[in-house]
Design a protein around this nucleic acid. Structure first.
Lengths: 451, 451
DNA sequence: GTGTAGGCTGCGAGCCGACAA
DNA sequence: TTGTCGGCTCGCAGCCTACAC
């Protein structure tokens, strides 16, 4: 979709005519901003591990459809392929602006030191924190009634400074999107109380990108002080509801057959990685994989942290416990390491976190207090009324008024205590707490204690 | 895309929430009207021939990309599979209204009489001609400046009759689209000279369906006298420029691997047939295939007719000559019958007709006059100036003023004469004409002769 | 600090016949 | 018969502040 003729219409050369991609290379910074803080792509030339199972999962997520029984097994296709990453190109769907990466992989049986070192580089590389802000659009932002209310900090950090001697202070902003189209906005500082607004041009952007309340828009400033802007749609329906080109069965078969053929011939093949379509990356730096698999002793009850993306495009670590190790798909993918760890999360309120992860996604933490002997959870433990499996207690120190949250999990009818933040709760405090709880009868419900 | 709240917004239950398809069955009449007059789907339970090569072609057309060298051969996959057609469901893309059909096929090695007879039925079945009209939208039709100018005949044939005693005569029309959304239009008969117009509601339809000049809209009246309307987009860029889910290689491999797996196991598989994406149907009634292959003796120089769709959704037969028989893809598909006939067309002006067809697409006509000995055309014959390869002559009979067109093709430096319409030009007339032309020197340019 | 609503205004969507092909 | 244009008008897109949380 091209914006229709108007002041905000793309001034750059339109470039949607050719087939697969864009002639210009996509701005990598903007691409990563849209992809989110957790996404990092392995360097070209490095060694990676490709998981066809994860790839299949992404297809299923995009098609909103599980793998069908008709999809055959590929007994000769291993659950993971060590590959050389020949090429990575960044793309954005011309209709939806959805970001994705195209990777060319080649299965290898031997590899040189350089490729291995490059994949280690991927672990150390941390992108410099860029100047950007991300805001989830409100009903007012997307209505035709008005413009876009810019959070104060965001405007001051990202936008060029206004001349506050003007009445009212205002300027014209130009920002380029992923397709290198330029959008023009009037940036004005007005109202009572004063606030930053984008007015003229904003509604064209909203309708052009078909944004609705709940979607996010993000602005970044590149090294040349130029504004770039991207969008991130809320998790509404998948963009490709049904492809009308290929049945989902054929798609799944295509993924598997392409990988199997490449593996058998050591020939290159191409995959699309769509970071926002599926929860897990299925092309993992080899060093990251190796370090996780050989560095971590997985045991039931092991505590770990894992990075998640926050509302506002930041990151946050959540804590969890390994509750089981088993095949995600025992029929098709026996002994696969793809999401073979069953986990429970400390904060159940946050809700929709996955109950299965792969070992390279987590950071084990040495449990400072209590490690349960296996078997840890019975898989289907009936919830006894009045005795929740998990509850959160808030304790307060009398002198400092600092408060600490601990998690009480009922295991084998015994309470086990986990701290939410290891840094704040001292070992002695936990011991005391443990003693206190063990001496008391079973505890349930919300409560505050004093230690 | 749902129309936003307004008088023309869908009054029917919205039904785009589930994944693959529509809960309601699509109106078959409307689907066929949108698919075009040439498309007919084989009956469920009948025997069909599936051509993976043609399927692959459709994928390539949808992806705007040719088959890559990376796509492996499937030496065990024959170029055609005899299949039982288990299921056919009609669909329309919720974004674009593009029509497509989902078919479940099962390769068979033996088949019963019933399935064979059913596939013969497909040949005899002629859909009853439905009441419909199709108009290609003009710039005025799609501009925001006004409404839709309804061709007089169309309005009188399809729309409910107006009360011409009103000043001006006007009524409200309601029409349902493929997704069962209802669109409301004001139909008025006014202007000087008087004409039929759709005004209020029309622009919402245009913007809702994102129609542009060159696209077509069609109205049909069903058996309950209710209006249905569909759209047909002009041949602009393919809707799925690049899928962002699967690489085109994987798609091709998926098609082939799915067919190969099904063929090996005699298990069912699913294909999407998108009649407007690719020029040829790749699922053919078995009887049609058999009749063509065993009924027609193909020889170079053979004359044939073939049905094409006209601008206004009618059909027209064009005449052509078989100029060669060879594999379309000698590497991947040796000895395949898929579009293995090279052809030339009598009317080169119409231009974009394919130069390769399959035998079941054509109707051989007994050449009443002249059959050229092979080799017929030299493949790259230079056009001699002043001596066109093809020219059209119009002859007129003195007594009736009836005129006949004949085609003169220069072959091996000799003129060969074809009649455009076999019914009108008698054999004797052609003989006379032939003699006339042979006795004269070479003929070129436009001319009228008298016989 | 920021989301939403009410008020006001000007532009363009949309209805009309004129006119020409 | 029907495509396009100029003219006219009214609805709503879009800019503003007030106010609430």
């Amino acid at each position: 979709m091209k914006a229709t003729a108007s002041s905000a219409a793309p001034s750059a050369a339109p470039n949607g005519s050719d087939g697969t991609g864009e002639k210009r290379t996509i701005n990598a910074e903007l691409w990563h901003a849209c992809a989110g803080p957790l996404v990092s792509l392995p360097p070209v030339g490095s060694l990676v591990v490709y998981f066809p199972q994860g790839h299949s999962e992404q297809v299923a997520a995009s098609m909103q459809k599980d793998i069908d029984v008709h999809v055959p097994n590929y007994p000769n296709l291993p659950s993971k392929l060590i590959c050389l990453l020949h090429n990575v190109t960044l793309h954005a769907d011309s209709e939806t602006d959805e970001v994705y990466a195209q990777m060319t992989l080649q299965p290898v049986s031997t590899y040189d030191k350089e490729a291995l070192q490059l994949s280690e580089l991927a672990l150390r590389q941390t992108r410099p924190p860029m100047e950007f802000f991300c805001k989830t659009l409100t009903a007012s932002d997307t209505s035709t009634h008005g413009g876009f209310s810019v959070p104060r900090r965001a405007a001051e950090k990202i936008f060029p400074p206004l001349d506050y001697s003007m009445q009212p202070p205002a300027q014209e902003l130009q920002a380029r999107d992923l397709h290198d189209n330029t959008w023009t906005f009037r940036h004005i500082y007005r109202g009572q109380p004063k606030r930053h607004l984008l007015t003229t041009g904003w509604s064209l952007f909203v309708s052009g990108k078909r944004l609705i309340a709940g979607d996010s828009v993000l602005f970044i400033r590149d090294e040349k002080q130029q504004l770039l802007l991207g969008i991130r749609r809320a998790n509404r329906q998948p963009t490709n509801i049904s492809s009308s080109v290929l049945s989902s069965d054929s798609m799944h078969i295509g993924v598997l057959a392409a990988a199997a053929h490449a593996a058998a011939n050591h020939s290159p093949f191409t995959v699309f990685y769509n970071p926002r379509a599926s929860p897990s990356e299925f092309v993992v730096p080899f060093a990251k994989y190796q370090k996780a698999v050989y560095g971590n002793q997985i045991s039931l009850g092991m505590r770990f942290r894992m990075l998640f993306e926050t509302e506002e495009s930041g990151t946050r670590r959540y804590m969890g416990t390994i509750t089981g190790v088993s095949d995600l798909d025992p029929v098709r993918w026996k002994n696969s390491q793809w999401r073979n760890l069953q986990v429970g999360w400390d904060e159940s309120a946050a809700g929709e976190r996955r109950n299965r992860v792969s070992i390279w996604e987590i950071e084990p933490v040495a449990a400072p207090f209590f490690i349960c002997p296996p078997p840890f959870f019975r898989t289907k433990r009936p919830r006894l009324p009045g005795m929740p499996g998990t509850c959160v207690l808030r304790f307060q120190r009398p002198n400092t008024y600092a408060s600490y949250e601990v998690i009480i999990v009922t295991i084998n009818s015994k309470p086990v205590i986990y701290s939410v933040d290891m840094k704040l709760v001292s070992f002695h405090l936990l011991i005391k707490l443990h003693t206190y709880l063990c001496s008391s009868s079973y505890y349930c419900g919300k409560a505050c204690g004093l230690i």
